[in-house]
Design a protein around this nucleic acid. Structure first.
Lengths: 206, 206, 206, 206
DNA sequence: AATGAATGAGCTTTCATTCAT
DNA sequence: CATGAATGAAAGCTCATTCAT
């Protein structure tokens, strides 16, 4: 949806694996779905297209998932769990709040532009395609993830006073970071690390 | 799409007018469409829903527009023209680059959260639902709008050195600002002006 | 329908008049309709297209005719009356059965390839688009027209014995003649007169 | 289109099979479509009517064919291939040009009035309902079929001199033969064989 | 597990016709 | 007479889902 490239779809083999979006039959479905949902949107993707990318018939999808929406849900659940783990690992390795913020920024930029790009983009931009009850099932995980961010930003506010409202600051940062999926190209002249430096500069000034 | 509220849709009367999204038959269709496209996404909105909101039959839509996609195109064209005008008025009234940047930020925040909220959100988040040729028709306007931003940011780079890469800076800012549509509430405790101050602080430090 | 040329429609001015398919407002509608019905078929022609060719709005058609089908009926009625008159004039001027047959052939070839081409083709090939009751209204005229043919052929049978079954002979001839609208071109190398000679040769041998 | 009998449609079981218009799911669709296209015309037939005749839902048609027009195309392709084969078989069994012409006439009369009646009539009278590109796909087959006719007529011209212009002669004959579908009834007093004799008499005299 | 034909509700769009102006 | 917005039924087609094999 965000980058419509109907003419030249990646083959499934070139779509990176992570977590349970692996090379099992189920995982292949999830990877194909994540990719197509990002490229054409959830509504804009048909189960036939997912099946075709996996190399099975559309009816066979329903042996693995009971509905198209459950595929979406599973993609989102996987990426949120995987990303939360990465997030926690990242901040565990450093000690100051400033370092932790940088770790969060890098971690989130990788989540949205790295191997989890498809799934993470879907999580951020297709949230409302999820049913109310499935949204509810994921809220705890999302809240935990966000709390980590806001906690660090609160620490920085207490230390430096620069970050006035941590909640608002977080919202501005998530917008800036998530939007990078629409323009940032790994094969361009800028590295993700240097982009992270710019975001950190914006977040903390100087 | 961004805020799915199918159960309780605003009535057309409560949806603000601007430009040619007025109270003419055509304008009423555009206002209803802009609202529904924002709430349910372009793919998630049916022409019957648009017609029902206007209070006409679905077939009657096609007297005013020759396809659903032309409705989307017209909404986008109107808001981009209206917003560009507002943008130019805003920067014309101040003189320093810093003041101009603030004017741009306020202008864009109002565009995405004010009377043009529906249409502007659609412009930003449903761009890929447009046909290639209609995208092409709007590119000149979009580019002119973006150039104004980048021009001001270049000036600030030359003056202060703070803004290293104006293009990247603009991308981060547009993400932060556009994303506000997903969380900012006019009736909350924060005003758009104070939000603009935070964004300016983030943009220029100090 | 028989010769689909959607790209380059004749302008109304170039479509020949006859009978009450003249230059009155009503006649202009009939001429446009006859032409479009021939080119795109009755079902394949919209009232908007007819109106556009005449230079009025589609709603205005219904001041002249109470339905699309009545337009079809009127076209057919006009051409059948006009052609019957021409037929009778043609055979009145000659005396032998053989000469009369030739007159009928020439007359019918002119009907289907001359100024009445549009309407006559519609009469022959769109008969079943007419409602049962309108078909009934025209049957008397059609039967009179056909009786003239069969009468002459009977005479020839009695005289020469060549034409065994006049009814079947007529059916074969009407097929051969009517089909010429699909391939005969007035601006080609063959004239209608020489075509008539061939048909007469086929009809009577020698 | 040529014989509108909406009130009392034949059941599918009574519609003869040939080639791949058989009793498979696909073949049943093609047979129903061929029949309805002949009776009501291509434009006058709805996909829902075809489906109803087959005994399936209209959506199910699109598992077998990707559009209504593809159904038309397939009907035409099948009948042209089947008829061409029959044509070649027919002329292979006799030796003189006169006998070959008679074989062609009988073969074509059977094509338009026998088991292939529906499909053949559609081929002849609905050609312009086909898209340009599908027309192009069939042209080679049509041309081969016509060449056979013209070749035999040329031979007869050389032998007897009676057939002056073979191309024109063929056009007159195809009209006479094709038109028989509008009036000839197998259950009437005349057999197809005796009709063929009349056509041969008309074609060659004496 | 996988298939693939079938479903059936829903989609966007078309179009003859009406009618207030 | 002419307009043109509106109607509403029906068109071709889509698609998530089911299920007998």
């Amino acid at each position: 949806m965000l980058v419509k490239v109907p003419q030249q779809l990646k083959s499934l083999e070139k779509i990176p694996s992570f977590g349970c979006l692996d090379d099992s039959p189920r995982g292949r479905v999830l990877r194909a779905a994540a990719h197509l949902f990002r490229v054409n949107g959830y509504e804009g993707t048909t189960v036939r297209e997912i099946a075709a990318m996996v190399g099975i018939q559309s009816g066979s999808l329903f042996h693995h998932f009971k509905s198209k929406e459950e595929i979406l849900f599973t993609v989102m659940k996987e990426v949120i769990e995987y990303t939360s783990t990465k997030q926690n690992e990242a901040i565990a390795q450093v000690s100051t709040a400033r370092e932790k913020l940088k770790a969060l920024i890098i971690s989130e930029l990788y989540a949205i532009n790295g191997v989890t790009c498809d799934a993470m983009t879907v999580l951020v931009f297709e949230w409302d395609a999820l049913s109310r009850s499935h949204q509810h099932d994921l809220l705890e995980l999302r809240n935990a993830y966000e709390s980590t961010w806001v906690g660090i930003l609160k620490q920085l506010k207490d230390e430096s006073g620069y970050v006035e409202s941590p909640q608002v600051w977080r919202k501005l940062l998530v917008g800036a970071i998530a939007w990078s999926v629409t323009w940032f190209r790994k094969d361009g002249s800028m590295t993700l690390e240097s982009l992270a430096d710019r975001v950190l500069l914006m977040a903390l000034g100087r």
